[in-house]
C-alpha cells in the first residue's frame, strides 16, 4: 500500500485528537484538522475566524435548502469545501491523517484508507475534559454532551449513517482501557499490519 490515509473519528474527551497527532508523527505524515481551516481561508479569502464559526457544524434544515447539489447554507458550503480539499489531497496520492470531517465515508473509495473511531468511558472523558479545559465536573459533562451532539448531527447530516456506528469504521477503540500511548501503540500495530 503506497498511500496511507488515517481517518480518526472521536468522541469528545476521548483523546482522539492527541492520538491522531501521535499517529501522524509515528508515520511521519501530515495531519489535517485546523490546517483545513487555514488552507480554505487562504484559497477563498475568508478569514479563519469566519470558517471556524461554521466548522463541523450541521446546517439547520429549517433555514437551509438544497437544489441539485447546491445549498444556501454557509455550513454546508464550508463542509463541502473541506470534503473537496480532502478528496483532492487523496487523489494526489498524498498520505495524511485526518480528524473527523466524515472522512471515513467521504474517502472510503481510496484503498489506502484506514478508518478508526476512538471512544472512551464517560468518567475518563470527564476527567480529561476537566483537566484540559480546567472546568468543574458538571460543566465538563455538559460540554461533552454538547460537543458530541454537534459532531453526531454534523456527521449524520452529511453522511446519512450513524456517527460512531462500528460498521462504518475499520476499528473502534476505547482509549480509556490502555491510555493514550497504549492506544496509539495498538493502532500503530494495526495500521502497520494493514500497509504491509
Amino acid at each position: 500500500m503506497s498511500q496511507l490515509i488515517i481517518s480518526v473519528g472521536r468522541e469528545f474527551g476521548s483523546g482522539g485528537k492527541v492520538i491522531a497527532e501521535k499517529l501522524a508523527k509515528r508515520f511521519n505524515i501530515p495531519i489535517y484538522d485546523r490546517h483545513l481551516i487555514t488552507e480554505i481561508a487562504s484559497k477563498t479569502g475568508l478569514t479563519a475566524g469566519e470558517i471556524e464559526k461554521y466548522n463541523e457544524t450541521p446546517a439547520s434544515r429549517l433555514v437551509s435548502r438544497r437544489v441539485r447539489g447546491f445549498s444556501n447554507s454557509i455550513e454546508d458550503n464550508i463542509a463541502e469545501m473541506q470534503f473537496d480539499f480532502l478528496r483532492k489531497k487523496a487523489e494526489s496520492g498524498e498520505s495524511f491523517v485526518v480528524l473527523g470531517r466524515c472522512s471515513e465515508t467521504k474517502l472510503r473509495d481510496f484503498d489506502g484508507l484506514v478508518s478508526i473511531f476512538v471512544t472512551g468511558d464517560t468518567d475518563s472523558k470527564i476527567k480529561r475534559v476537566m483537566k484540559v479545559y480546567e472546568m468543574p465536573e458538571d460543566d465538563a459533562r455538559d460540554f461533552i454532551t454538547k460537543k458530541d451532539r454537534k459532531r453526531k448531527r454534523y456527521h449524520n447530516y452529511h453522511v446519512g449513517m450513524h456517527w460512531g456506528d462500528s460498521r462504518l469504521y475499520d476499528l473502534t477503540i476505547n482509549s480509556s482501557k490502555l491510555g493514550i500511548d497504549g492506544t496509539v501503540d495498538i493502532l500503530e500495530s494495526y495500521i502497520r499490519a494493514r500497509i504491509k
Binding site: 484559497k43 479569502g45 437551509s64 437544489v67 447546491f70 444556501n72 454546508d76 458550503n77 463541502e80 469545501m81
Partner: peptide
C-alpha cells in the same frame, strides 16, 4: 435565501468561492 431555486444556487456558488 431559501425562497427559490435561483437563490440557493446563487448563494451556494458565492459561498464556495469565498463569499458567504
Amino acid at each position: 435565501p431559501i425562497g427559490a431555486s435561483a437563490n440557493v444556487v446563487g448563494t451556494s456558488v458565492a459561498a464556495k468561492n469565498g463569499y458567504p
